[in-house]
């Protein structure tokens, strides 16, 4: 039965780009669940714009630096959405692929290398962060909160930001001894970053010590670049400086993640 026509044509080889075969696996699964996700990716920005932009914004009389609060806030929310999706998709799903459904072990028995398994899953996380951000950008543009055509530059920026936060999170989730560690990551990294990295108010309002901490977060660099793009102004820091800083997080994160993956998969 097995050795009829098709088996003869099955010529096992190495896929041309193995990471793409891995990405395809996640996309097949996503095809089943994306509708629920799309609804929330459009609903969330609408709610935030109405709640924070119009609601809170109404009390921010003078705006920020002469800008309407909503316009100032939106790019920050875009960057923080990218970060939250990127980190969210890099925590439980990664832990589960090691400990619960063991997808990574199934993949490592195929002719894939650890780097392919990691790169394919990271690519899917970037895809998720990118599409969520693009939806956010579209909705807020409809609300008139995007002031410059430079706003399209937000898209490559969120890709880099997502990689800069997802890669180290992959390392953390691969290392985490149990899923309660993942909740700590949200408590001590994601929420503080969201609150203090310049999304809701300028970092300059923070006391100096905290301000230095805010500058060290990858999110602030993403926020500053996104804000410059949607407002069509120069960022507070140099563009290459921002990009290099985010790239450094991405590269360091990749190296740590690959080491953590190897430790689990090649034993």
């Amino acid at each position: 039965m097995v050795d009829v026509s098709v088996a003869g044509r099955v010529r096992p080889a190495l896929p041309r780009v193995p990471a793409l075969a891995v990405l395809a696996h996640y996309l097949v699964g996503y095809r089943r669940t994306w509708r629920a996700g799309v609804f929330s990716s459009f609903l969330l920005p609408v709610l935030t714009v109405v709640g924070f932009g119009f609601g809170v914004g109404a009390y921010v009389d003078q705006g920020v630096g002469g800008l309407r609060y909503l316009d100032w806030l939106v790019p920050g929310l875009i960057a923080s959405t990218a970060m939250q999706v990127a980190i969210g998709e890099s925590t439980w799903p990664v832990l589960s692929n090691f400990r619960w459904i063991k997808t990574y072990f199934a993949q490592s028995a195929a002719p894939l290398r650890v780097g392919d398994i990691l790169a394919g899953h990271l690519a899917f996380v970037l895809f998720r962060a990118f599409t969520s951000t693009a939806a956010f950008l579209l909705v807020t543009a409809l609300f008139g909160a995007v002031r410059s055509p430079w706003a399209v530059a937000v898209l490559p920026v969120v890709l880099l930001l997502s990689l800069a936060v997802a890669a180290p999170t992959f390392a953390f989730s691969a290392w985490a001894p149990s899923d309660s560690y993942l909740a700590l990551l949200f408590r001590f990294a994601v929420i503080p970053m969201t609150l203090f990295a310049g999304v809701f108010f300028p970092v300059e309002s923070l006391p100096s010590g905290l301000r230095q901490l805010a500058y060290a977060t990858p999110l602030w660099h993403g926020v500053d670049l996104c804000r410059a793009a949607t407002l069509g102004v120069a960022p507070q820091w140099s563009v290459p400086g921002h990009l290099l800083y985010l790239a450094a997080w991405a590269i360091a994160g990749w190296l740590l993640a690959r080491r953590a993956f190897r430790r689990e998969l090649v034993v």
Partner: peptide, 10 residues
């Protein structure tokens, strides 16, 4: 099966 087959370049 089909997603796994792609790991083998099928």
């Amino acid at each position: 099966l089909t997603t796994y087959a792609r790991y083998f370049g099928i």
